[in-house]
C-alpha cells in the first residue's frame, strides 16, 4: 500500500493552502476517503504522524470522513448504498448502475493560524 505517499501529497496540498493564507501552522486536516479509494484510513492515520514530523502540521488533528459507495439506477431513478461486491439495484436487480460516490480521496478543509508553536510557548511563559 502507498498511504505514506498519499499522505505526503495531502500534506503538500495542505501546506500550499496554508501559505496562500499567510498562515504558519496547521491545526486540523479534514479528509474525505471513499470506500472505493483503495486507501485504508488506519494506515493514513499512521502515515500522518510520520510525514508531519518537523512540519507546520506536526501535532495537528487528522479527521477522516469515510464516504460509503452510493450507486444510481437510471431505470428506477433511485440512489442506493450497495451491499457487498455486486452493485445491484435493490428495486429492479439491474447491474447497469452508476457509481456516484465512494471514489473520493480529497482534502476537504484545514484549520490554520499564524501562530507558531514558539510564539505560543513564549506567550504562555510570559504570563
Amino acid at each position: 500500500m502507498h498511504e505514506v505517499s498519499i499522505m505526503q501529497n495531502a500534506l503538500e496540498i495542505a501546506l500550499e493552502h496554508m501559505r496562500r493564507q499567510n498562515a504558519t501552522r496547521i491545526h486540523r486536516i479534514h479528509m474525505r476517503v471513499g470506500a472505493l479509494s483503495s486507501v485504508v484510513p488506519e494506515a493514513l492515520e499512521f502515515a500522518f504522524d510520520v510525514v508531519t514530523q518537523g512540519t507546520p502540521a506536526q501535532g495537528a488533528t487528522l479527521e477522516i470522513e469515510r464516504v460509503p459507495a452510493v450507486c444510481y439506477c437510471p431505470a428506477c431513478q433511485i440512489e442506493f448504498e450497495p451491499d457487498g461486491y455486486f452493485y445491484e439495484c435493490p428495486q429492479c436487480g439491474s447491474l447497469n448502475v452508476q457509481i456516484r460516490k465512494g471514489r473520493e480521496l480529497e482534502l476537504a478543509f484545514l484549520e490554520v493560524s499564524q501562530q507558531t508553536a514558539d510564539d505560543r510557548r513564549q506567550m504562555t511563559d510570559g504570563e
Partner: peptide, 10 residues
Amino acid sequence: AQTIAVNEGI
C-alpha cells in the same frame, strides 16, 4: 485560527 475550504483531490 481560521478554517479554509480546500476540496481538492489528493
